[in-house]
Every structure is written in structure tokens, then in C-alpha cells.
Measured scan of single mutants.
Amino acid sequence: TTVHIGNVTYHFDNPEEAVKWAKEMAEKLGLRIEIHGDTIRVE
């Protein structure tokens, strides 16, 4: 599972961890997340 924040990509072996981490980052940055299969974007 990959999480994209701007130009930076993070890789997670556990999809649930990826979603949890992306949600925390989105809250901190005042952004929202979009999930497309195994790709998560924070925008």
C-alpha cells in the first residue's frame, strides 16, 4: 500500500496501518485523503 503526500511516497506492508497513518497526517495538515485501491492520496 502506498501513501502519497505531495511529491513524497510512503510504502506500508499493512493497508490498515497505511489508512490510519494517512488519516492522522491529513488531520495534522488540514487535508483530506482519497483511497484508490491500494493507493492513498493526502491532498
Rank of each mutant, 00 (worst) to 15 (best):
T1A: 11
T1E: 01
T1K: 07
T1F: 12
T1G: 05
T1Q: 04
T2L: 10
T2R: 10
T2N: 08
V3N: 00
V3W: 00
H4M: 13
H4L: 13
H4A: 08
I5C: 07
I5A: 03
I5V: 09
G6A: 07
G6W: 08
N7I: 07
N7Y: 09
N7H: 11
N7M: 09
V8M: 14
V8H: 14
V8N: 13
V8D: 11
T9F: 09
T9L: 10
T9A: 13
T9K: 13
Y10E: 03
Y10G: 02
Y10F: 13
Y10H: 06
H11G: 03
H11L: 09
H11E: 06
H11M: 08
F12A: 01
F12Q: 00
F12P: 00
D13E: 11
D13R: 06
D13I: 08
D13G: 06
D13N: 11
N14R: 05
N14M: 05
N14L: 07
P15F: 15
P15V: 13
P15L: 15
P15E: 10
P15M: 15
E16F: 10
E16H: 10
E16S: 10
E16L: 10
E17K: 08
E17L: 11
E17N: 07
E17F: 09
E17T: 09
A18L: 04
A18P: 00
V19R: 09
V19I: 15
V19D: 03
V19K: 09
V19E: 08
K20N: 09
K20V: 07
K20D: 06
K20W: 06
W21H: 02
W21F: 14
W21G: 00
A22T: 02
A22H: 00
A22C: 04
A22E: 00
A22L: 04
A22W: 02
K23L: 13
K23V: 11
K23I: 12
K23P: 00
K23A: 07
E24R: 10
E24Y: 15
E24S: 11
E24W: 15
E24N: 08
M25N: 03
A26H: 02
A26P: 00
A26N: 02
E27H: 06
E27V: 05
E27D: 13
K28W: 08
K28I: 13
K28H: 10
K28T: 07
K28V: 07
L29P: 03
G30P: 02
G30N: 11
L31W: 14
L31I: 06
L31V: 12
L31P: 01
R32H: 15
R32S: 15
R32L: 14
I33V: 14
I33L: 12
I33K: 00
I33H: 02
I33Y: 10
E34Y: 14
E34G: 07
E34C: 14
E34S: 15
I35W: 09
I35C: 08
I35T: 04
I35E: 04
H36Q: 13
H36W: 11
H36L: 13
H36I: 14
H36T: 12
H36Y: 13
H36P: 01
H36E: 12
G37I: 04
G37A: 06
G37F: 05
G37R: 05
G37P: 04
D38V: 07
D38A: 12
D38R: 12
D38N: 15
T39K: 08
T39V: 13
T39A: 08
T39Q: 11
R41V: 14
V42M: 12
V42N: 02
V42F: 07
V42E: 02
V42C: 04
V42I: 14
E43F: 15
E43H: 14
E43Y: 13
